[in-house]
Design a protein around this nucleic acid. Sequence first.
DNA 1: GTGAGGCAACCAACTGGTTGGTAGCCCGAC
DNA 2: GTCGGGCTACCAACCAGTTGGTTGCCTCAC
Lengths: 191, 191
Amino acid sequence: MRDAGATRRRLLEAATAEFAAHGIAGARVDRIAAAARSNKAQMYGFFGSKDGLFDAVLAEHFELIVDAAPLDGADLPGYAVALYDAYLAHPEVVRLATWSRLERHPVGDLFADGVDHGAPKVAVVAAAQRDGHVDPALDPGDVLSLVVGMATTWSPASILLAAGPDEAAAVHDRRREALAAAVRRAVTTGS
Amino acid sequence: MRDAGATRRRLLEAATAEFAAHGIAGARVDRIAAAARSNKAQMYGFFGSKDGLFDAVLAEHFELIVDAAPLDGADLPGYAVALYDAYLAHPEVVRLATWSRLERHPVGDLFADGVDHGAPKVAVVAAAQRDGHVDPALDPGDVLSLVVGMATTWSPASILLAAGPDEAAAVHDRRREALAAAVRRAVTTGS
DNA sequence: GTGAGGCAACCAACTGGTTGGTAGCCCGAC
DNA sequence: GTCGGGCTACCAACCAGTTGGTTGCCTCAC
């Protein structure tokens, strides 16, 4: 029963759910401690503060946020569809990122910690342009942004319509096809 | 000096800034009352509650959210660019919509009040399909969602990169061109 | 083997400041 | 003089963060 690592993990898990649901300002540390079957004192021992806990949660999901799907420069439509499915399966990841955007980083890169985390992906797109897969007239960074933008069209942070698991499979399939076709035509070359 | 209407307007204005900056949970009613050079008692007299005030703010910006730019079925690329500019000029509108999405309506339509506010715009797209401007194979609702999704690629709610007014004009122009080209190729027909 | 000592994990109860919301009163115009 | 606009002072509930202490596990002398 006495296992600091497991307790820490339970706290992070509970904090993920709480922050994803209510954001930083709306999250309640008591709820997190209770949901994790622990207590606030331990929480503060591990993470220092409410903000520190959010940092830890975000760091844990960092890879899932920026690499929700593997990027293949030769198959950007497939990448977009994979992102659509990832956001559908894990809406909490998108919500966490969006809370961070709204409550922490109103402009610029979401992860503005000195390291340009998008650089490798931009390089992949640039390579795909050299290989004739992607329109070379476009800025590779813009291509990446646009593809992700299209994939987030029905995400839990969308303005118009957020997709949910309750919708018919046919609706999801229709969106996947429209998304793949749109990405293909928008940024890839005929080849 | 004694003008209930003007006071109400000042309160709404202050509330808009406060809610856009901090969301519902993060907003502070004292700050709103102070910023409006009024007081909480009046605020509660007008709007009943913090949530009621947010409702009023959202209702006031409703049109600006859903009709940030006029929709022309024959010029969807122009519509997308106009949206990009609108979001750049009025980030608070996008932020309000996103707070509402995150804190109030996790899935489905953002304005799920029985009325389908998107219907007229979907009809415009459907007409554009009949007129040969837009690919008729796509679902008109999906077309609208995708175009708005592309236009929000660099919005204050984006996951990767949020555009700001401090960026060079050339960067904005490059994005406008990429956006227009992408929309044109993605959903419009050759004609 | 065992039991005393040490220590990390654990926790209920508390604290001081904050927050949404309200009651009661003042003031100026007509 | 009264009525609508305006506002200060107040409150109960809440909330992030702390305290002081308990509990169970490991270890090592004997």
